[in-house]
Design a protein around this nucleic acid. Structure first.
Length: 562
RNA sequence: UGGGGAAUGGUGUAACGGCAGCACCUACGACUCUGACUCGUAUUGUCUAGGUUCAAAUCCUAGUUCCCCAGCCA
């Protein structure tokens, strides 16, 4: 029996299951049609899960089809990124890799066929005139004066369009359907437009390019796709999709199924704005850890397993929804908690001197790499007279239930000794610069005197072994909802302002300065991610350390201090 | 106001005429060599109004709200 997670169903699977049962298709074949105009983001992960995942679920195949029908918006550089991200997520295009542009010949031939069949015509009206003839949501459109050209004339004009005789926008090829249709998408939609622009795959071969509505169903049908999953906004295009498959005479009929795209709280998902963030330099690139891209999340230390678990738990349905970021964080944390080796690091160091510990003498402390997985081994660090602890782990004037270090109080240093704070030394500004403590030498972890309980336990680093590291500063683009509201209010003249402001999770980014024990740096070579005890975790990427604080201190002392 | 969709706790998602379940969030408690993790407990829900039925989230009628469509974008 499969476990509950694996059997979690959704309405798409029900449809596919029914199609299979009714014999409407023999083997499930889906496709992934990303447009190469940016890097994949967490929303695409859902698309991958839905399409490639459905194929996997029913032992079918999934194609990767680079959807590059519009040369104006697409760039070669994104293709490799897309492929890499899909593989990183753990999916393959076992059905093959295709390019929408490789069907240009077939699209063109079918367009000629439609002309011959009297189902398409060349339009001379300008864009503006076409808009007027189209009617409105409540009024029917009017037939174009060019609607009843002969097949011969249409063919001649269309071939001349292809030959490059006309400038951009001079003419288009339209489907002849119904200008009075209540569905505006059926009011003689455009099939082909003139675009004198080289294509990153086909070069200068074409100066006319098919529209999505024409190309997509053709591509699906040619590839033998059985189920074509896309987002809700294509629902009204489904009649057109079916019309194209029908009139082109394909024996097989792919089925388009729409589902609600993924929305996340506090997260900008529109590729247009993500692109703007990159192009205007608000972030370092598509893989900036603040970006909701798969590349950004990868750099943050997220693992595909956590992301996929999130997608699955968020579910697939037809209702528009906004999933809380907390669910993503939970899934990622759960995944990382299981696999990440533990390490101690201090981000904002506060010097601690153990006054009864001899200068120059050290004690080797062995710590497990994972509390639940002894097979992950141990690592050894040194305890000495000079240590660093977290600034926030000491309070000169403690409030409420503050279990950590305070004057006269005791805490255990993880894996080592219980220490007592004797006094704190301040700098010229009155800030605590150093805490002087005594260690209970009989309380060493593992020794006989170790069972004495103290309320707090702190992580620490031996100052001498600490390797200062320079972290990249990933400040949140915006701190909180109030700030967003304020900015939006003040910038009303810019309509896009609200969307443009990246509502990226402020908790995912932390400015840090501090030090790492040397062993951490060494261990980091083996695995990217460390569970960082109470704090969350941090990851190492090619540029250095990025700290991701996903676990907030939600303790009662925090409340008391308000 | 045309057409196409969707409405279930704070959030997301199940239940396809038969006990409204699960997860996240939140709160409280237990545990703990960090207050994390883990474990336990709890609050909160079927858009509205009628109707059919022994029985309605589910079927019917009317209404309400939200989303998408008037690109030579996808």
């Amino acid at each position: 029996m499969e476990d509950a997670k694996a059997t979690r169903s959704n309405f798409i699977w029900d449809i596919v299951q029914a199609d299979l049962a009714a014999g409407r298709c023999e083997k499930v074949h889906t496709r992934l049609p990303p447009e190469p105009n940016g890097w994949l983001h967490i929303g695409h992960a859902k698309n991958i899960y839905v399409n490639a995942g459905t194929a996997k679920r029913f032992s079918g195949l999934c194609n990767l089809r680079i959807d590059d029908t519009n040369p104006a918006k697409e760039e070669q550089e994104f293709v490799d990124g897309i492929k890499g991200d899909i593989q990183w997520l753990g999916y393959q295009w076992d059905g093959g890799l295709f390019f929408g542009s490789s069907y240009f010949d077939q699209c063109y031939e079918l367009a000629e066929k439609l002309i011959l069949d009297g189902l398409a015509y060349v339009e001379d009206l300008s864009q503006e005139e076409m808009r007027q003839y189209r009617g409105t949501l409540t009024e029917p459109g009017r037939n174009s004066p060019f609607r009843n050209r002969s097949a011969e004339e249409n063919m001649d004009l269309f071939r001349r369009m292809r030959a490059g005789e006309f400038p951009n926008g001079a003419r288009v090829l339209r489907a002849k359907i119904d200008m009075a249709s209540p569905n505006i998408n059926m009011r003689d939609p455009t099939l082909y437009r003139i675009l004198h622009m080289p294509h990153h795959q086909t070069g200068d071969k074409w100066c006319i390019y098919p529209m999505y509505d024409f190309a997509h169903p053709i591509q699906d049908a040619i590839e033998g796709i059985t189920h074509s999953m896309c987002s809700l906004e294509y629902e009204a295009h489904r009649p057109l999709y079916n019309w194209v498959v029908e009139v082109c005479g394909f024996p097989n009929h792919p089925r388009q199924i729409e589902y609600a795209r993924l929305n996340l709280t506090r997260t900008v998902m529109s590729k247009r704005y993500l692109r703007k963030l990159v192009e205007e330099g608000h972030v370092s690139g598509w893989d900036d850890p603040r970006m909701p891209t798969l590349a950004g999340m990868r750099r943050r230390g997220y693992k595909p397993e956590g992301i996929l678990d999130f997608i699955e738990r968020a579910g697939v349905a037809k209702a528009d929804s906004v999933v809380e970021l907390a669910l993503l964080e939970h899934c990622v944390r759960e995944n990382l908690g299981e696999i990440a080796p533990r390490a101690m690091a201090v981000l904002r160091p506060l010097r601690v001197t153990i006054v009864n510990w001899p200068e120059g003498e050290t004690d080797a402390i062995t710590l497990e790499n994972h509390p639940n997985h002894p097979e992950m081994g141990t690592h050894t660090i040194r305890f000495g007279r000079h240590l660093c602890i977290e600034q926030e782990d000491f309070m000169e004037n403690p409030v409420g239930k503050f279990f950590r270090l305070k004057p006269g109080g005791e805490v255990r240093l993880k894996g080592a000794y219980i220490i007592r704070c004797e006094e704190c030394v301040k700098d010229a500004l009155g800030n605590v610069a150093e805490v002087r403590c005594t260690a209970d030498l009989s309380s060493r972890s593992g020794s006989e005197g170790a069972d004495r309980k103290v309320k707090g336990t702190l992580h620490w680093v031996n100052a001498e072994d600490a390797a200062p590291f320079e972290a990249r500063l990933y400040e949140p683009l915006l701190n909180d909802e109030d700030a967003i509201a304020e900015e939006v209010e003040g910038e009303e003249a810019v309509p896009d302002r609200k969307d443009f402001i990246a509502r990226l999770n402020p908790r995912s980014v932390e400015v840090l300065t501090g030090c790492l024990a040397e062993h951490c740096l060494l261990s980091a070579k083996d695995g990217d991610v460390f569970q960082f005890l109470r704090m969350g975790y941090f990851c190492k990427d090619r540029d250095g350390f990025a700290f991701n604080r996903t676990v907030e201190l939600k303790d009662s002392f925090k409340k008391a201090s308000r």
